[in-house]
C-alpha cells in the first residue's frame, strides 16, 4: 500500500456554538454577556444576591428582636402600630417589629427552600440516573414509586404528612424533599435514557469501563445544566409551598418568623392593618419571582431544549 503524502487536513466546518460547550470559564463569560442583555434576569440575580445578604446579615440589619413583644409595639387599644417611626414597617398583632421579622423570615424561607431542594436534588439525581441507566426492574419499581407520590396533590400531601408528624422546620424540609425528588428523578431518568444510547457511552462501555465510572464521569456531567435549572425553579416552588404550609398553620411553628405565617397572622387584622399583608406578601412574590426568572434565564442559557414542567 503506497501511502500518499499526508497533506494538512482541510479545516472542516465546525459546529457553531456547541450547546454542550464544556469549559466553565466559557460558560461564565457567556452567562455574563447574556445577563447584560436580559434585564429581568439581571434584576432577578441582583435581588437574589441582596436577599441572601439580608438573610445572612439579619442579626445586624434587624432594628429589633424579631421574637420580642414590645410594649410600645401596640396601641392603647391593643392594635398593631402603623409603619413609621420606631417601627419602619409597623408591628404585628403581638407587638413585634415587622421589618425584623421579615429579615429573619428571609432566613427561614431561603434555608427551607435551599435545603429541601438540595436533598430532593441529590435523591432525585441518584435515583433518576440509576433507573435510567440500568432500566429493567429497578426502573419499573422506581417509576411506580414516583407515580404513587406524584398522584397526591402536592400541597394537600404536605399538609397531611405534617399534620401527622407535627409541624417543625425540619419536618417541612423533609416533607418537601420527600415529594420533590420524584419530579427531578423523572426528568433525569428521561435524559439518561437517551444519553445512555449515545455512541460515546457505548464506546466507553466497550472499552471495559465500569458502570459506576460511566455514570459519574460520562452521564452526570451532561445532566449538570438541567440539574441547575430545575434546582433553581424548585427553590421557587419550595418557598411557595413552605409559605402555604405556614399560612395554613402546619409550617414553621410560632414564634419563629416565616412570611407565610406572618400573612396568616395579618389576615385577621387586614381591615385595620393592611401592611401586615403587604410587606410579607411582597417579599414572598419578589423572592419566588426572582428564582423563577433566574431559572428561566438559566434554562435559556444552558439547556434550551428542556421541557416545561409544572
Amino acid at each position: 500500500m503506497t501511502a500518499p503524502p499526508e497533506p494538512l487536513e482541510p479545516p472542516e466546518s465546525r459546529r457553531p456554538a456547541d450547546p454542550e460547550a464544556p469549559s466553565v470559564r466559557d460558560g461564565l463569560r457567556r452567562a455574563g454577556r447574556s445577563l447584560l442583555r436580559d434585564l429581568p434576569a439581571l434584576i432577578s440575580i441582583i435581588v437574589l444576591v441582596l436577599l441572601v445578604l439580608a438573610a445572612l446579615l439579619a442579626p445586624l440589619l434587624a432594628p429589633h428582636d424579631p421574637l420580642r413583644t414590645y410594649a410600645e409595639g401596640l396601641t392603647d387599644r391593643g392594635a398593631p402600630v402603623s409603619p413609621g417611626g420606631d417601627f419602619p414597617l409597623g408591628t404585628d398583632p403581638n407587638g413585634r417589629d415587622v421589618l425584623s421579622r421579615l429579615l429573619y423570615g428571609a432566613r427561614v424561607s431561603l434555608t427551607i427552600g435551599i435545603v429541601a431542594n438540595g436533598l430532593a436534588t441529590i435523591v432525585g439525581v441518584v435515583v433518576g440516573v440509576t433507573a435510567g441507566y440500568f432500566g429493567g426492574l429497578a426502573d419499573t419499581v422506581i417509576s411506580r414509586i414516583t407515580d404513587v407520590i406524584m398522584s397526591f396533590p402536592i400541597l394537600l400531601f404536605c399538609v397531611a404528612l405534617i399534620s401527622v408528624t407535627g409541624p417543625s422546620q425540619r419536618n417541612v424540609v423533609l416533607v418537601i424533599a420527600l415529594i420533590y425528588w420524584t419530579y427531578l428523578a423523572r426528568i433525569i431518568r428521561g435524559m439518561v435514557l437517551s444519553l445512555r444510547e449515545r455512541e460515546f457511552v457505548t464506546a466507553t462501555r466497550t472499552l471495559g469501563v465500569g458502570n459506576v465510572r460511566i455514570m459519574v464521569r460520562h452521564i452526570l456531567p451532561h445532566l449538570v445544566p438541567a440539574i441547575i435549572v430545575y434546582a433553581t425553579l424548585g427553590v421557587a416552588s419550595s418557598i411557595l409551598i413552605e409559605s402555604s404550609l405556614s399560612f395554613i398553620g402546619v409550617g414553621v411553628p410560632v414564634p419563629e418568623a416565616s412570611w407565610g405565617q406572618m400573612i396568616d397572622d395579618g389576615r385577621k387584622y387586614y381591615e385595620v392593618a393592611p401592611w401586615l399583608l403587604f410587606a410579607p406578601g411582597v417579599c414572598l412574590i419578589v423572592t419566588v419571582l426572582a428564582f423563577n426568572l433566574a431559572g428561566d434565564w438559566l434554562r435559556d442559557l444552558l439547556d434550551p431544549t428542556a421541557p416545561e414542567r409544572r
Binding site: P22, R198, E199, F200, T202, T206, G208, G210
Partner: peptide
C-alpha cells in the same frame, strides 16, 4: 467480559457522537 473487551475495540461512525463532548 471486561477483560475480553480489551481484545476487541471499535471505531464508530459518528465522529461527533463517539467522543464525550464534555471530556
Amino acid at each position: 467480559l471486561k477483560a475480553f473487551r480489551r481484545q476487541m475495540q471499535m471505531v464508530y461512525q459518528d465522529p461527533y457522537d463517539s467522543l464525550d463532548p464534555r471530556m
